[in-house]
Design a protein around this nucleic acid. Structure first.
Length: 571
RNA sequence: CGGGCUGUGGCGCAGCUUGGUCAGCGCACCUGCUUUGGGAGCAGGGGGUCGCCGGUUCAAAUCCGGCCAGCCCGACCA
């Protein structure tokens, strides 16, 4: 491709709305344009990278026996009603009414449609199956943000495994785990596989692939010592035991004006945060519930959902707290509460001589023995792990890392197959409900994650495997036309051997060309200029390292091929 | 959905406090000439209902009200 024919609207300055690096650079380098919040046009360079990512995904999916298909993006409501998700998906699902007045949804995922397709399977001899598609998903996100990282419409590779038994599902899950590891390696993403919450998908296990980046929206904990890694929504750590002073008889005392853990700790020498009980009031699927944690610990709402099985949790508002307990937030406690469910985090087990609210404004209890004085209905893991806490596996310190979620794999089980009566006959002639797995990679998000992890102050710095073009030939105008002739020749020869190459044939000054090519992030630049050409050479510059070597004109094509091979091999 | 910020040619911004040659600057764009190894110079030129609607006023980019959109933080989220 000649640059003069290419639509690459580069910008010298980034639009003000772009904050994160990938968004800023993809805009500046002319890869994407925003149509609307959460909706982006992929311009020619952006689409090329998107396609390359998709092709890597295809190759690795095919390698584990996946078969590509393409399902509708729009679904009739009954499909979602049959699985129960027409109601449970809530506002995140785009819904529309057709001319007949029938309800439809834009697909946010395809478990239902796959389970329907799989009804075409009749015999145990026809499984296992792995089906995948790369197709547009629509999600009415509450807050699209950060360019391509969180959008309302995007291409996703979603695959689905169909097996007759748990061992088959485990195998399909492991195949995907391995394929995802290769996929992210090949695109230069240092993804970490972590234990994750299954969330609204349901199912028995899930693993997320996380790329460390400040632009991400998820936190994981990782043990540098033994390799344990988990999303904070699931992560556990060793909580150092607290030696509570002996004694402690339950005693109500005045605490005028005190409404926070910190204020109470400041006022009472015997009530440092780790010796207080934090009492949170939550509404779990409509049921007002007390949630107790150590005073210095934070609640993980996802753990609360996962470990209670509730589908919705929200903090109670002040009026609800007063109605339930007779006091405002800041003076709440579970001592003597018998009519509400009480859930307590495991870090409180066995503790005594604690301080907590007395359910009367301006009063607290001291000397609280949690087993003796509080009727805990259920002990659960509810606390969020903190940076530096010891790993439960090896005792090493856990680190907290901000990450971009680029992939997520789930063991779904039989929920969807049951909803659609997706069965096959087993060897004994008995109908068996299939068990499913579901596995997703956001293609556009992966593109953004690569941009996020591969750039410098000059612009993007694509790995050769996903770069929009692999090389650029840059003629520097000279006194005669030998520069142009050599440039054209190298351009033709590189194309002939399968190198994806741009010829920067613009009548522009060298600085303009260099800057644009660096901004766009082409891995290799072949500079054809009068200086080197006088000695029969051209220059080969590596975008990632900035290193330039002089190579003979006649060996230039081989040098580019060698550099490309080396770059691909290093991924 | 709560909190904050922002809407002025393609991009980045000034102007708004104190209404009146303020519709302006840089970059980009077009034409010509000169240039050509790190975002060239000179000369000429085109492009904007100042987010939208309404109000105040002799007069509104500027003041007032409403609405819309975008971004960031939080909540939420496969």
């Amino acid at each position: 491709m000649r640059w003069s024919n290419l639509f690459v609207p580069t910008l010298r300055e980034a639009p003000a709305e772009a904050e994160v690096a990938s968004h800023r650079l993809l805009l500046r380098a002319g890869f994407v344009r925003q149509l609307h919040s959460g909706h982006y046009s992929l311009l020619p360079l952006g689409l090329r990278v998107h396609d390359k990512v998709a092709d890597i995904v295809r190759e690795e999916m095919d390698a584990i026996g996946g078969q590509e298909l393409l399902l509708p993006a729009m679904h009739p409501a009954w499909v979602w009603e049959q699985s129960g998700r027409w109601a449970s998906m809530g506002e995140e699902m785009f819904r529309l009414t057709d001319r007949k007045g029938a309800d439809n949804a834009l697909g946010m995922t395809h478990e239902e449609v796959i389970a329907l397709c799989a009804r075409e399977l009749h015999s145990y001899r026809e499984v296992p199956q792995i089906w995948y598609q790369i197709q547009w998903k629509f999600r009415d996100e509450p807050r699209p943000k950060s360019g391509l990282l969180r959008v309302r419409e995007f291409a996703m590779k979603d695959s689905y495994s169909l097996d007759i038994d748990d061992a088959g599902l485990d195998h399909a899950f492991d195949l995907h785990h391995a394929a995802y590891t290769r996929i992210f390696e090949r695109m230069g993403l240092p993804a970490i596989a972590v234990e994750a919450s299954s969330g609204a998908m349901g199912g028995s296990a899930s693993v997320e692939f996380m790329v460390p980046s400040d632009a991400g929206e998820d936190d994981i904990v990782r043990c540098g010592n033994c390799g344990y890694a988990a999303n904070v929504e699931r992560a556990v750590a060793v909580v150092a035991p607290v030696d509570d002073p002996p004694g402690g008889t339950l005693e109500r005392f005045a605490t005028p004006g005190i409404r926070t853990i910190a204020a109470l700790a400041a006022a009472e020498a015997e009530a440092p945060p780790h010796r207080q009980i934090k009492t949170l009031v939550y509404v779990l699927d409509g049921q007002t519930t007390l949630v107790l944690l150590r005073g210095d610990h934070e609640l993980s709402e996802q753990k609360l959902l996962d470990n209670t099985g509730a589908t919705a949790a929200r903090p109670a508002v002040a009026d609800e707290c007063i109605a339930a307990l007779g006091a405002s937030p800041g003076s709440l406690g579970a001592v003597g509460v018998g009519d509400l469910p009480v859930l307590a985090d495991g870090a409180l087990a066995g503790r005594s001589n604690l301080t907590t609210g007395a359910n009367a404004d301006d009063f607290h209890y001291r000397g609280v023995d949690i087993e003796r004085d509080i009727g805990v209905d259920e002990w659960l893991d509810l606390r969020q792990v903190r940076h530096g806490e010891p790993c439960t596996g090896c005792g090493g310190p856990l680190e907290l890392l901000r990450c971009i979620e680029t992939g997520h794999i789930f063991k779904l089980g039989r929920r969807y197959a049951e909803a659609f009566e997706t069965t096959v006959m087993d060897a004994e002639g008995v109908p068996r409900t299939l068990t499913m797995g579901s596995y997703g990679i956001g293609i556009g998000r992966a593109v953004a994650a690569v941009a996020e992890t591969h750039h410098d102050d000059r612009g993007l710095c694509w790995p050769a495997s996903v770069a929009p073009y692999e090389a650029a030939v840059v003629p520097i105008a000279g006194r005669d036309d030998s520069v142009a002739q050599v440039s054209e020749r190298l351009y033709d020869e590189l194309r002939a051997v399968g190198v994806e190459v741009i010829l920067d044939d613009r009548d522009a000054r060298p600085g303009v060309k260099f800057s644009d090519i660096e901004l766009v992030g082409i891995p290799f630049r072949v500079t054809v200029g009068p200086r080197a050409l006088a000695a029969g050479n051209v220059e080969l510059t590596d975008r990632a390292t900035g290193e330039t070597t002089h190579v003979p004109v006649d060996g230039a094509v081989e040098s580019v091929i060698a550099a490309k091979r080396a770059a691909l091999a290093a991924l």
